[in-house]
Design a protein around this nucleic acid. Structure first.
Length: 275
DNA sequence: CATTTCACCTGGTGGC
DNA sequence: TGCCACCAGGTGAAAT
């Protein structure tokens, strides 16, 4: 489900609804996959904390937690949605959906729920005391400079799409927005990253940034089951030019969109518009 | 070291 | 209706 625009939409929605609220109690499922810390430790660390702020770093949702508004946040709670994760702010009397793995009961009476059928999502504690505030593995696509963007791909011998998906280079870009930005930049996904000209890399950065901004405006892409913190779908899927459009005519030139496997992911492109 | 492949999960869809 | 193959927004470990 979730790439940068979807995670941004969820994080800002949860921020608006829970900022300043306090965690009264915590329930965690018996599955081991979602939890990077022992569940009892996580429940204990969260209970009683005030939610100071919720924001996005890469594909991670970061909760700044504190004992009180007077003290700086001492712990962060990190939520990664994986493929099918949802973070919902619900009234407590709404039945729990199947595959609910965490319920944070808030003093306002509402609940923050983490739901994830495939269990690829992850919940983790990040203590700030001995380290720095959580910062993702790579550069932020929306703010990276042209010089840094060019430098990311220099001397790399892998297809540009595989490089875009590598979170240690840029974090937040996933399969949809990699395919869409390469289409808008007119670049074949299989082109070697290190062989692209400065010009084409600049065009790719511009395409990526404008697409991510537009997708955030539209609340993200709802392909099968993505929804925001209120359970509402996004609209950017209506703007897709290549993603999941295999065999359909390119909206620019009419050539059938082609699907290949690259970096283990379905990859969609127009063989005429993308060279 | 850099790059590629695969396992991890459930659920939806479409063919037979 | 059932069964099966295939596909899906992600990542990290293992293999190359």
């Amino acid at each position: 489900m979730p790439e940068l625009p979807e995670v941004e939409t969820v994080a800002s929605g949860v921020n608006e609804r829970t900022r300043g609220d306090r965690i009264r109690s915590v329930w965690l499922s018996r599955y081991k996959e979602p939890f990077k810390n022992p569940p009892t430790e996580m429940a204990e660390a969260l209970t009683g904390q005030r939610i100071e702020r919720v924001h996005r770093v890469g594909k991670h949702i970061v909760f700044d937690l504190g004992e009180s508004s007077a003290h700086p946040a001492s712990t962060q709670w990190i939520v990664h949605l994986g493929m099918t994760g949802r973070l919902l702010v619900s009234a407590a009397d709404i039945p729990l959906p199947p595959h609910t793995h965490a319920v944070l009961s808030l003093t306002s009476g509402r609940e923050l729920r983490f739901v994830d059928p495939r269990r690829f999502g992850r919940l983790a504690l990040h203590p700030i005391s001995d380290a720095q505030p959580f910062c993702g593995p790579g550069h932020e696509p929306l703010t990276i400079s042209t010089a840094d963007f060019r430098a990311l791909f220099r001397n790399r011998r892998l297809p540009i799409k595989a490089a875009l998906l590598n979170q240690k280079l840029l974090h937040g870009v996933g399969n949809i927005y990699a395919d869409e930005s390469l289409f808008h930049a007119g670049i074949r996904p299989t082109r070697m990253a290190g062989r692209l000209t400065r010009d084409r890399l600049d065009r790719l950065r511009a395409a990526l940034q404008s697409i991510l901004r537009k997708a955030i405006e539209l609340g993200g892409s709802s392909v099968s089951d993505y929804v925001d913190a209120d359970g509402v779908a996004g609209f950017f899927q209506l703007e897709h030019r290549v993603y999941l459009r295999t065999g359909l005519p390119c909206l620019a030139c009419g050539t059938p969109i082609r699907r290949i496997l690259l970096a283990g992911r379905g990859t969609h492109y127009c063989p005429h518009c993308q060279r």
